[in-house]
Amino acid sequence: MVNLALAWAEAYQKEHPDTQISVTGGGSGTGIAALINGTVSIANASRAIKSEEADKALANGIQPVEFVVARDAIAVIVNPHNPIDQLTLQQISDIYSGKINNWSELGGEDRPIVRLSRETNSGTHVYFLETVLRLGHKENKTLFSMDTLLLPSSEGITAEVKDNPNAIGYDGLGYIIPEVKVLAVAVDPAGPFVMPSAITVNDGSYPVSRDLYMYTNGQPGGALKAYLDWIIQPEAQAIVTQLGFVPVIGAIQ
């Protein structure tokens, strides 16, 4: 999310040379801790604030106010010739952890499964590991199967999925090209199986998605308010799409 915050800050400062915004990375916990300590005006976080963090903030005289500034969704993709249209989270987890090795085990053709993933340094990789492979359970220590291909770029993944009928891959919804087939995903084997789109991500029905937040101390005013108002404008949300995230629709907060 640091890339998004940096891109916003850069674009905003170009338009408003009198406003200075400095952005530091380090993870959601770092940002929220800095807000609690009163050292930053805005904390960016790719998860909601925890109740113990909120308590700590109040004890420190800080009132965290939440803004949803963008959304992040991961699409699971296969080759257009693959007859599979939908999978459950459990099935995707079993594919990537190496329990399922042939498409025929899922009702597809008799082909070996080639697993594609982003490199371990990508935020998408970590989010996919936690949300899909480990199904959101903290104590779950499932790892990617050793023969998972780790590709350095989104293009690498889409190029291989486009050509290779054995492949399965995943990537941020904004990076998906029309030449690959996006799978519908369900939490429950009984359904509903949901296709990822700006609408299903925004109404929360697509399971592999999350909100991206900004937190301020109390209702923002002055330059801070101007910045947060600018962020939900179409122009700032266009940056969201460029970076492979999903823009928020309609009014927020």
């Binding site: 490199e119 050793m146 023969d147 998972t148 291909l149 780790l150 590709l151 350095p152 690498g156």
Partner: peptide, 9 residues
């Protein structure tokens, strides 16, 4: 890096 798949097998 682009063509070997980078799977540590």
């Amino acid at each position: 890096m682009m063509v070997t798949g980078n799977a540590p097998v």
